[in-house]
Design a protein around this nucleic acid. Structure first.
Length: 423
RNA sequence: GGAGAGGUGGCAGAGUGGUCGAAUGUGCGUGAUUGGAAAUCACGUGUACCGGAAACGGUACCGAGGGUUCGAAUCCCUCCCUCUCCGCCA
């Protein structure tokens, strides 16, 4: 959510932001609702002030006296007016809130112009993705793949997109999660283990509701939502709280399974481990002082990149253009790992800065130690990393002629062996 | 799941229909006192929104939401949470 003052005082900035994100949003409609709401608010408050004054005067009079009766009549009239106004005011407030929710976050000045994915800027390339790998094949075609990643049993038991990880498959997933958490701890992120189901208020604060309701699994009868990412419970950790300025920046990381209905996605992009309804991910989160957020974004991206470097996987960094940035982000980098068998890039991390867009909705603030006043923090997050696509890349990039997969050196202590075997 | 007790400012804790944004204590801040400190004293000390260049003014907020009433922290209803006991359970 944007600052209402911003749209009043600098509507041209917001208009420019909407244009850069290539969104079709009617700012003038929002401004009109805002103006109507403010006018109505002032009238209502002045009526309430009259009501309060009459009440105070009335309280000083003897009950039942003629003066008291006169005041009572006045109060009755005022009360009726106030009630009528309050109903209208509430409707306007809700309209205004809904209108504000249609406004996207402003892109940062460093975000490149562009309409869609083709306009994203390749910010960095790391590793030799173009090295010929003659025997590389898509991971789902590797002989024995179904033994370690049992999609058939998974779909029998739960549905498509819910594989069983078995033997070395399960071991590899566990090793990666463990490795990611340890590396992130070294980088200063405090590990947390969040609730996997969240309530409506939490899902709303991070923006999953109401827009993306169909993308989440919802439980009955308690109306809890299965988290699509640890970002949801983790960002809500400090919801409605005021932090000490000295406590900033706060770094957290959290492993969690993620549940996504992925309604409407089909095709070859979703083969194998590319897109699942349930997958494992380690998420990095930051709550920072507004003056530092873009430095923190670079550091966050570096922290996620280091994981891929240590795993010795070729990857590239995309700086997302305005049109592909997303509604809530002010700046975003995607990390894509090279998948040698599929010969395509797979997104394994998305590192974003939200400035105050999330923190305003979630009311996450810090107390400015100079002014003593609460101010909104800036929030950032990024994957570090999403597991199944890393697994896919590892299988495809490290597959040997003998059908075994070489485990990266850093992962060997976690995996316990130097090779993964499909036998 | 059942029974009971509760949810008021940073914390503790009064307040059962009007003069209550809320006593008192404590914490915190500023000042006085002091050689300095403690103690003491004085003053100040929540959040949000609206108006205003500002000073400041207005309104709302006593877990959340509804209701009764001219008027609600106070009465009624629903929900959430905490505590105690019982039941169940990894």
């Amino acid at each position: 959510m944007l600052d209402p003052k911003l749209i009043r005082e600098s509507p041209e900035l917001v208009r420019a932001a909407i244009a850069r994100k290539h969104l079709d949003v009617d700012l003038d409609a929002v401004l009109a609702v805002d103006a109507a709401w403010r006018t109505h608010l002032q009238e209502t408050e002045s009526l309430r002030a009259q009501q309060k004054a009459a009440n105070t005067a009335m309280a000083a009079l003897p009950k039942g006296s003629p003066e008291f009766q006169a005041k009572l009549a006045e109060m009755r009239t005022l009360s009726g007016q106030v009630k009528e106004r309050e109903v209208q005011l509430k409707e306007l407030e809700e309209k205004f809130r809904q209108a504000m929710l249609t406004l996207p976050n402003l892109p940062h000045a460093s975000v490149p112009d562009g309409r869609g994915p083709d306009d994203n800027v390749v910010h960095a390339l790391h590793g030799a993705h173009d090295t010929p790998r003659p025997h590389a094949i898509p991971h789902w075609e590797i002989p024995g793949f179904e033994k370690l990643f049992d999609f058939s049993r998974g779909s029998k038991v739960a549905g498509a997109g819910f594989p069983f990880y078995v033997g070395d498959g399960a071991r590899l997933v566990r090793a990666l999660v463990h490795f990611f958490l340890d590396e992130n701890a070294k980088a200063g992120y405090i590990e947390a283990n969040p609730p996997l189901l969240v309530n409506e208020a939490s899902a709303t604060a991070t923006g999953q509701l109401p827009d993306k309701e169909g993308q989440m699994y919802e439980t009955t009868p308690d109306r809890l939502y299965a988290i699509p990412t640890a970002e949801v419970p983790m960002t809500n950790f400090y919801r409605d709280e005021i932090l000490d300025e000295a406590a900033l920046p706060v770094y957290r990381c959290a492993y969690s399974p993620c549940f996504r209905r992925e309604a409407g996605s089909y095709g070859k992009d979703v083969r194998g481990l590319n897109r699942l309804h349930q997958f494992d991910k380690v998420e990095l989160l930051k709550w920072v002082h507004p003056s530092t957020s873009y430095d923190e974004l670079e550091k966050l991206r570096g922290d996620a990149e280091r994981l891929l470097q240590k795993l010795d996987l070729p990857y590239r960094v995309l700086l997302m253009c305005g049109g592909d940035l997303g509604f809530v982000q002010s700046k975003k980098y995607d990390l894509e790992v090279w998948s040698a068998g599929q010969k395509r890039w797979l997104e394994v991390s998305s590192c974003s800065c939200f400035e105050t867009f999330q923190s305003r909705r979630a009311q996450i603030r810090f107390r400015n130690k100079d002014t003593g006043k609460p101010e909104l923090v800036h929030t950032l997050n990024g994957s570090g990393l999403a597991v199944p696509r890393v697994v896919a890349a590892l299988l495809e990039n490290n597959l040997q002629e003998d059908g075994r997969v070489r485990i990266p050196t850093v992962l060997v202590p976690y995996f316990g062996k130097e090779f993964l075997s499909f036998a």
